[in-house]
Amino acid sequence: ICFGLPDGEPSAPLKDRWADILNAALIGPQSTRIVDTGITLSTIGDFAKRNDDGSFLFENQKTVEEFSTKGMTTSLRAALNQHKGASLLGKLRWLSEANVLQQSIAYGDYTAELVADTLYDAGTKSLKIDDKPLSLLKQRALLAMQSNPVLARNVVVLAMRRAIADSLGGSEKAKAKNYKQTYYGLALQDFRGPQACIEATHSADKLKELFANWHFEFRVTSEQKQSADFAKCPLEYEPDPAALASRPPAMGSGAAVSLSLGNDFYVLLPSPPVLSTGLFEQSDSLRLALAYRDRLSQAIIDRNMGETINSLRDEAGKPLTTRELRDVAFGVVNDGWDWQTRRKSN
């Protein structure tokens, strides 16, 4: 997908391929249904012989039922030798890999690293977005964050970890101090509630000590805003459903870092464990894409298990006997069944 030629010869990445992938229409949620159906059809289709005109002739039920006791008939062997199921699974693998690629581009760590590299400034130890005028690359990076809250939160985690590492003299020292998890936790405890919206309370002092050049704010819901206690707090951003033009998605309420630049753009702060471990947030769509890629890979492994076992050799390089092959197959099936049905510990 990313580089190489159709005939398999090595080559440099194609210049316009990245733009092509970014501009491609997203693979829809129906892809999971296609994979589910395809995995089932890959087995059913093997019990039918494909004719030259493209039609399928299925084996009768009795032949299939007696397969385990009487072995394969000539016609059934001919149908299986067409490897239709394996071919279908191979095509579905392209679909699942493309889906993972698209979701990774939108929500994965590589894109977050690129945006963080673009916006983070080691001199100020912050996301530098006050350039005038702002470069086109930074504008695009901010636009990507604004339209993708998951990406935005991952970028902020990266930038905050870099800021702590830079202040401590490197990532190894930051790891040794667990990225100041305890002190950052205390800072978040101070910076919450009505006092977070009043500068005189100095509730943001610990946060500013950790991140001197960052601007923090405490966003509240519309319901909280009605209370006198939260009257001075900025309201959380929610898109107007009646607006005709597209609007960024909702960004939530709570302690946040402002990336305003003249508009209502902020990112909620990560929890202390997330900051200390650098744990990336994944969208449901990315997790689903990864799960279905794994499921399809397992189906391909299961399909190729017989050929793999038959290709086994002993220490002398000789093929295993029929009995030895049956013992291996029996062990694989039983171990696999035991693994799938084992009782999970609490």
Results as ranks from 00 to 15, higher is better:
I34Q: 08
I27N: 00
N23I: 04
T43N: 10
L41A: 14
T43M: 12
T40L: 14
Q30Y: 07
F47R: 08
N51G: 09
R33G: 14
R17F: 02
A25H: 06
A25N: 07
I34L: 13
D53T: 14
D20R: 03
P29W: 03
T43Q: 14
I44K: 08
I44V: 15
I21H: 01
R17G: 03
V35A: 00
N51K: 11
D53V: 13
L22G: 02
D53I: 13
I27A: 00
G28H: 05
W18S: 05
A48E: 07
D46T: 11
L41I: 11
I34F: 03
I44Q: 15
I44H: 06
A25W: 01
S31A: 15
I39D: 00
F47Y: 14
R17H: 04
D46N: 15
D46C: 07
T43G: 09
L41Q: 12
I44D: 14
A48N: 06
Q30K: 09
P29M: 04
G28A: 12
L41P: 02
A24Q: 07
T40Q: 12
Q30D: 15
L22M: 06
A48H: 08
D53P: 06
R17E: 02
G45I: 13
T32Q: 09
I21E: 04
I39P: 00
L22E: 07
A25I: 07
I34H: 02
A19E: 06
L41W: 12
D20L: 07
L22T: 04
L26M: 07
L22F: 01
